Amino acid sequence: MASVLMTSSNASGPVAHAYSAPGMNFGYPEGVSVTDLVPEHIKPLVHPHWDAFPPVNPMWHYLLGVIYLILGAISIFGNGMVLLLFMKTKNLRTPANTLVANLAFSDMCMMLSQFPFFAYNCFSGGVWMFSAFFCELYACLGSITGLCSIWSLAFISYDRYNVIVKGVSGTPLTSGKAMIMILFCWAYAIGWSIPPFLGWGRYIPEGILDSCSFDYLSKDWNLRSFGICIFIFDYCIPLLVIVFAYVFIVKAIVAHEKAMREQAKKMNVSNLRSNAEANAQSAEVRIAKVAMTNVALWLICWTPYASVVVQGLFFDQSSITPIVSMLPALLAKSASVYNPIVYAINHPKFRLALQKQMPGFCIHEEEEKASEDTKSTETAKA
């Protein structure tokens, strides 16, 4: 097969030969597998599952590379802006917003550790261009930052639950507790990302073989058990925490509004709240919606990839093609783009800080409205 691929004397490698020759599929001879294009030092890491698939249209490599460049630029700029506002604006440095800043930091680290290398591979022929160890390191860093973001969202959800559902009976979030939560996020993420280096699970190239992730295709129990644990402890459990928190948040808001309307009806008045109270309650509901939108976007991004993992672990793998596995992986990493956009656009205090620090963005936020958001955005001060 190698001799067939290298017949063109003008070719610089298997990716470069005879795109217009008759009887070829995207320039590759019939029978060529996507794994035939992988450098020799990477082939031991490639799962045999990918031998059954031909190379994808080269257009996919360039398209994914361009998408990744755009997502990377937006993510780094957006998350960097959130961190900058957090550091420069004193009244944003609350315990609750510390969790938001940690989310922005982990999201930014995700893109910094992933998109430059993925994009380089895409524009360099669509194969993994670095060492086998760097493939494992790339996957490990993606796992650490992704899991840290997942658990940051879980703790943000719990804080919203504590503020809105429990109210005055809830234990206020202090700076110390916020730091413990952040340390847990990073320690937990690192703890679940290191085992493949110690013999439990492994990191391998996936999809079109220009990126790497953990092995969810092998039926060996050592590898399969790691994949199952990752799915349960790093997707299902945080998902349950998030769903639990927001189900009760919505129920509490609906019940409170219903009680207020019924009491107002008994007293023959249209509204029991003063204007300030009404605005404060409106801010509370608005912030809850912002966080719920964030979580919904995360679910949209990560659930397709979780579905591919479940299919690889338990069901028929024949439909897991390079593109079928690659697009959900790209969608999962795009989660790092949405968080700063949602918070910058919808969070009143962040909008006010953005208006003051970066007036060129033409943000117009009323300072009084933002100050009425205190009850929802500040659970306590250390």
Rank of each mutant, 00 (worst) to 15 (best):
N121D: 12
S113N: 05
N339M: 13
A96W: 03
F118W: 08
A245V: 02
R93K: 10
F86P: 01
A370Y: 00
S124C: 01
Y138H: 13
L84I: 09
F118K: 06
K289Y: 14
V324E: 06
F105I: 04
T377D: 13
P58L: 06
G72N: 06
A264N: 07
K369A: 09
P238N: 09
S3A: 09
A380Y: 14
P172G: 13
I144H: 04
N25W: 09
S3D: 08
N57D: 15
M111C: 04
A52V: 03
G176A: 13
T35S: 10
V342H: 03
L272T: 08
E257W: 09
I150W: 02
P340G: 08
P29G: 00
A104C: 05
M267E: 09
H49S: 10
S124T: 06
K219W: 07
I363E: 12
L240R: 02
A370I: 07
S124F: 01
S218H: 02
D316P: 01
S143K: 00
V241M: 08
W60Q: 00
P95T: 01
A264T: 11
F130Q: 11
T379D: 15
A119Q: 02
M181Y: 12
K251I: 11
V285Q: 05
G78V: 06
F248R: 12
H364G: 02
Q263E: 15
E284T: 15
S149F: 00
A119S: 13
F361A: 13
L330R: 03
P196G: 02
P328G: 02
W298L: 15
F123M: 10
G167L: 04
P322S: 00
M292G: 15
V34I: 15
D36P: 00
P172A: 02
M24E: 08
R261E: 11
A18C: 06
H47T: 04
P359G: 14
P29E: 06
I237N: 01
M108H: 05
F77D: 00
I242M: 10
M108W: 02
P348C: 08
P196I: 01
A329N: 11
S9F: 15
K88W: 06
S9R: 12
M179S: 08
V250T: 09
S376A: 15
F117C: 04
F133W: 12
Q355N: 07
L198H: 00
V127H: 03
I150C: 14
T377V: 10
S225A: 13
G23A: 08
A2C: 07
Y235S: 13
L272I: 10
M267H: 07
L103I: 07
N91C: 03
E136N: 08
